[in-house]
Write a protein that binds this DNA or RNA. Structure first.
Lengths: 133, 133
DNA sequence: AGTTGTACCATTACATCATACGGTACAACT
DNA sequence: AGTTGTACCGTATGATGTAATGGTACAACT
């Protein structure tokens, strides 16, 4: 498994890692059950911070592409091949697009959508015009 | 119609204007058909930039609270009373919250939601992990 | 003792955006 | 000539979020 990180690539480092590991799974460079290098080991090899690698591993486990077994290390998930082909971002994009389209059709400004989005995401409510009678 | 703008209020100036005009309509300080001060006039009276007032007017017309008739000036919309009580932001907030909840339940990170949201809003696609086979 | 993943504390650089401002110009009216 | 709303150019500031970095610490194992 050869992983190459490009600092000049606009794609975030942790994303490059996620991509390449998924690609390695898809292209059978690594198979379910195989052990992955430890976070610190990989960080050292790629000259990255361990937090960056940890972030990639965390996302990969969320997508069930890898499995961390605590002190025993990290391994490729049994269903890794299938789960590597699933593009979660595509689904997120679609979901958000539906909502945004609905709002736009009602004449809502992109600015207003953005503000409301941030409010919704951060949990706070009623930022802006609180003219409720 | 007395309008007071507070510079120290964290609420944006144009929002304060929108609020106060809607409140004036609700409290019958102004009635449908009444003429509003011109953008430049009001900006001058409140010591605001004309663009700030114009932005408020634009939003008020979008909400059908006022009606601009070009060179003839701006007037209170016939349905202003009803439309002033409608809280569009509430509806936007609810709509976005539904989508965000759905995504979160699927383990999607707030960070990922934010990135996908920006991509969806700016129209661009496939930012981040483009590992599609 | 050394390694595993993980969870905190933190800072830095960079990008994006909202808000508000200023100037200039236009057509259509009084 | 003066006014109306509107549209375009622009700049400046403050806020916010991402990405990436560093250090420290923990329990559970070999």
């Amino acid at each position: 498994m050869e992983i190459t990180i490009n600092i000049d690539d606009p794609v975030p480092l942790f994303s490059q890692l996620v991509q390449q590991i998924k690609m390695a799974v898809i292209n059978k460079k690594i198979s379910p059950g195989d052990a992955l290098p430890s976070i610190r080991q990989l960080a050292n090899d790629l000259a990255l911070n361990s937090k960056t690698v940890a972030k990639a591993y965390r996302l990969l486990e969320r997508d069930s592409v890898i499995q961390t077994k605590g002190y025993r290390g990290t391994f490729i998930h049994p269903d890794a091949v299938v789960n590597s082909t699933i593009d979660l971002n595509e689904w997120i994009f679609t979901k958000l697009n539906e909502t945004i389209s609905t709002l736009r059709e009602s004449g809502v400004t992109d600015s207003e959508i953005r503000i409301a989005f941030n409010n919704a995401l951060t949990g706070r409510h009623n930022q802006g015009e609180k003219h409720v009678i």
